[in-house]
């Protein structure tokens, strides 16, 4: 068995080129567009990590803000004493552990329980963190001063994105990924063929949560001042769900199709009509459910299928006529 077949090698080459091109962006612009690109890569990582778990299992996780905030806080609390890479590792472990605990408590039950639990998770962690800070540190805010600029954050996120894509690809090829696809299609069947359903789901949720935590940690220097309401902002959970579903969850790179347009749109709307953002989120949810249930990816697949059919028809008809 070779490591990659020809098609995969081609995809890998294209991906490598795209990543190389993206890495050049900071040299072209250092202002607004770079900061927009940081947002895009950030949401790309978050959405892909989200899809890693929610795509095959169909569980809708709203815990993104909780993991993200934990990552940010790990850096905020330790930046004066520990080196940054170590803090990123701590962030990954902390959010992974939280994901594991949440998973063990809720993933054995049906999807609704999970949605509800994760819906409140960010708020819960925020309350606990605020309480601990007031009680033991005396103040709520934390300063994060580093030498890192937008550029460095962008490169780190880009590298993280590469790691997430490679992880996703490896998971898809592994027994775990195969097991998850079976679980997503029919959980009863999965249980009957001897898959430890709960364990598979918890492991993947932990991987996904750890990546989101790392993203939060990398973004911490950007905030400079970290406090609970901004670190555990619940809107981020919803944005991630919208973007991922808008793109489509069937394939690893599909969320990207939702991330790019929605990040730009959201940026525009929040710049010119700051009071209309929740309306925008609401309309986006409705639009996805009623018009794009399989995301942009679904549209592309439909188009391809129709195209292939008409090509077959075009090729087939003259032969039949002869």
């Amino acid at each position: 068995m070779s490591l990659m077949n020809e098609k995969e090698q081609r995809i890998a080459a294209i991906a490598l080129m795209l990543f190389g091109a993206a890495a050049m962006i900071p040299f072209a612009d250092d202002g607004y567009y770079l900061s927009l690109c940081v947002n895009i890569v950030m949401y790309a990582v978050l959405c892909t990590a989200w899809t890693l778990f929610s795509g095959p299992t169909h569980y809708i996780s709203l815990a993104t803000a909780a993991f993200f905030g934990i990552g940010t806080y790990s850096v905020g609390l330790g930046i004066d004493t520990l080196p940054f890479p170590l803090l990123v590792a701590i962030a990954a472990v902390a959010s992974g552990v939280l994901a594991g605990l949440v998973g063990v408590a809720t993933l054995r039950l049906s999807g609704v329980y999970f949605v509800i639990f994760t819906l409140g998770l960010a708020e819960l962690v925020r309350q606990v963190v605020t309480w601990l800070q007031v009680k033991f540190l005396g103040s709520v805010g934390l300063y994060v001063f580093t030498d890192m600029t937008e550029k460095h954050i962008f490169w780190m996120l880009l590298a993280l994105a590469a790691v997430v894509y490679i992880t996703g690809w490896l998971v898809n090829r592994s027994r775990l990924g195969f097991a998850l696809r079976i679980i997503g299609n029919d959980e009863t069947v999965a249980r009957h063929v001897g898959i430890d359903v709960a364990r598979a789901k918890v492991i993947l949720f932990m991987i996904s949560g750890a990546f989101i935590g790392i993203t939060g940690a990398i973004l911490a220097p950007r905030f400079a001042y970290v406090e609970p309401p901004s670190a555990f902002n619940p809107v981020i959970s919803f944005q991630v769900v919208i973007m991922a579903l808008l793109g489509g969850t069937g394939r690893l790179w599909a969320p990207l199709l939702g991330v790019i347009p929605f990040t730009i749109l959201f940026d525009r709307i929040s710049a010119s009509f700051p009071n209309h953002t929740s309306l925008l989120i609401g309309v986006a949810f409705m639009a996805i459910v009623y018009f794009l249930p399989r995301g942009v990816m679904g549209l592309i697949d439909d188009f391809r299928a129709r195209h292939a059919k008409s090509r077959h028809a075009a090729a087939g008809v003259p032969e039949a006529a002869e």
Binding site: G111, F238, H276, S278, M286
Partner: peptide, 25 residues
């Protein structure tokens, strides 16, 4: 049932944000 559950959760999320947005305005 599972499909309905996911769809209704997403749709009512939309409804929630729309109602909230209108009330905010």
């Amino acid at each position: 049932r599972g499909q309905l559950e996911i769809d209704s959760i997403l749709a009512t999320f939309g409804l929630m944000f729309i109602m909230q947005g209108v009330m905010l305005l």
